[in-house]
Structure formats: C-alpha cells, structure tokens
Design a protein around this nucleic acid. Structure first.
Lengths: 138, 138
DNA sequence: TCTTGAACCTCTAGTCACTAGAGAGATTAC
DNA sequence: GTAATCTCTCTAGTGACTAGAGGTTCAAGA
C-alpha cells in the first residue's frame, strides 16, 4: 500500500488530478489510513495508468468512464469500446484536417511581412482584417 | 447604426459572444440607445470581423488583444504582429505533429478489434491498459 | 395609439479538465 | 520529541464561451 504522492510519482499524474479523478468516479474511492490519508495498491496503480494512457490519446473523461465500465464487465460485448476508439480517431482526423488548413493560411500570412515595417502597412494585420485576402475558406 | 442582433448576423458571431468580447476589452464599449441597447457602426463591424477571423485562425483572446493595440497605432513597428503570427504558426505545427502520432496509434488500436468479441478479450481495452502494446511514445 | 412578440438587457452559473492556494492535520526520519 | 514533508478538504480560477432567469425595450401591424 502506498500514498497518493507515491502513486503520483509512479504514474506521473499530479496529486490533485488523482483526487479529481476519484471525485469524477474514474477511480474508486481509495482506502484510508486511520488519519484519513488515501492508500493505494496495484489495482489502483493499473487503473490510473489506464486513465492516463487514454487521456494521453485524447479520450474525454466521459469516454474513459464508459471504457472503465466495460473493463469491469469483461463478459460484455466490446462493441462500445471499438465505437469509442473509432469516433476518437475520427475526431483526431478532423482536427488534423482543420489544423492543416490553418497552417497553410498562417504560413502564407507570416511570409507576407518581414516585421520590419510599421503596423499601418503590415500584411499580417491586413490579412486578419480582411478575409478576402485569404486563399481559401477556413 | 444597427443592433447587436444585426451585428451578430453579419459577422456570424453569437450575441453573448459579442458581449463577452466587449467585457474582455476586445471591442470598445458600444454606444447605447436611450433604452440602454447597444448600437454599432461600420467600425464596430470591422473590428469584430477582425476578431472573428483571428479566432478562426486559432489566435487567443490575449494575442488578439495585442494585435488590436497594434492596429490602433499604425505608426508602431509591426514586429510584434509577425511575432504573434509566427508563434501561432509554430503552435499549430506542433499540434498537428502530436495529433498525427495519436492518429497512428488510435488507428492501430482500432484495427486490432472488430468489436465482435467480449470486453475481456478486447484489443482496444488491452492497449489502453498496457502502454507496452504501443508502437511508439506519445 | 395601442398591443404584441421578438429582441435586448444584466446577472449568475455551467462547461471541461484540471490547477492553485489557504489553512489545518498526518506521517516519517532523525 | 521535533521538524520537515505530505496530505487533507475546500474554494476559486483558467479560457472562451454557453445557457438560463427574470425583466425591459423596440419595431411593426391593427
């Protein structure tokens, strides 16, 4: 059994974040010492690692909550899990697409001004003021 | 002179968002009718268009605030503007990079399970539980 | 001119996933 | 025993809005 600080070190999840996850129901309520401090074991460590990994991959707390429920019922169909992962993948792809458009636009705008003139003649400011100077929709 | 609703229609920025921008100091305090309703003119429209365009490109409220200050002083050097645009571009590129890694990982995980088995055997859940199943760092 | 209904006002609180800080109590090492 | 470090709960703040309550004003038609 180890403390919340120890769990934090091992998982690289900050202490207040661990408490937050508990409050959100992602982690079960931890056992306590007589002095009311949380104590964890291997199971707690594994669950928190799962959560952290899923968060790193961009899953929302809500999605993780669903995934955990599935984990706790290994006999149920895993269709929901693949659905969640697939829609997460779609979201990531959509974000990439959008960011690529922004990248092109920003890169074009940045190249338009070397930063040596005055604000009144700045192509960056002009581009932001006038959408018509843009190449494409965004 | 037109109302906040009209301004909203023309710029496609929602009414509460316009009020929020005013509160944040991005928009100057609007003129009011005797009945205390906001009225806008062409200048207000242009400034809000600027803000919306910059937001669409992912600039933060703070960054936009700096850009607006520059706009209001056309005699100052525009170095700050190009700096802001460049660092925004860098951020966007960093985000894309990170999302690409996630995309690869999620795609690999999703492919590992067709959703037809049970949760106990699900590769999606197993991958999330065990970082060692990952191809690369993320 | 009166009435109706849409648009407007302010204010508070909620969103997401944490993060920061206060003030008090617990644990651990020496 | 004492000092240093950890931990506890609670509240409030972050960014960029969004939602809703409860009340007021405006514009158009009768």
């Amino acid at each position: 059994m180890f403390s919340i600080g120890e769990l934090s070190k091992r998982t690289k999840v900050k202490v207040p974040t661990i408490r937050y996850y508990e409050e959100m129901g992602l982690l079960p309520e931890a056992e306590r010492t007589t002095g009311n401090q949380r104590r964890y074991d291997k199971a707690g460590l594994e669950r928190l690692s799962f959560i952290r990994h899923a968060r790193d991959l961009g899953f929302s707390i809500e999605a993780i909550s669903s995934l955990i429920k599935l984990q706790d019922h290994p006999d149920r169909s895993c269709e929901a899990a693949t659905d969640i992962a697939t829609s997460q993948l779609e979201e990531v792809r959509a974000k990439i697409k959008r960011l690529r458009t922004l990248e092109k636009e920003l890169s074009r705008i940045s190249k338009g001004c070397d930063g040596e003139g005055v604000a009144g003649d700045c192509y960056v400011l002009a581009s932001l003021a006038d959408h018509n100077l843009c190449d494409r929709e965004h």
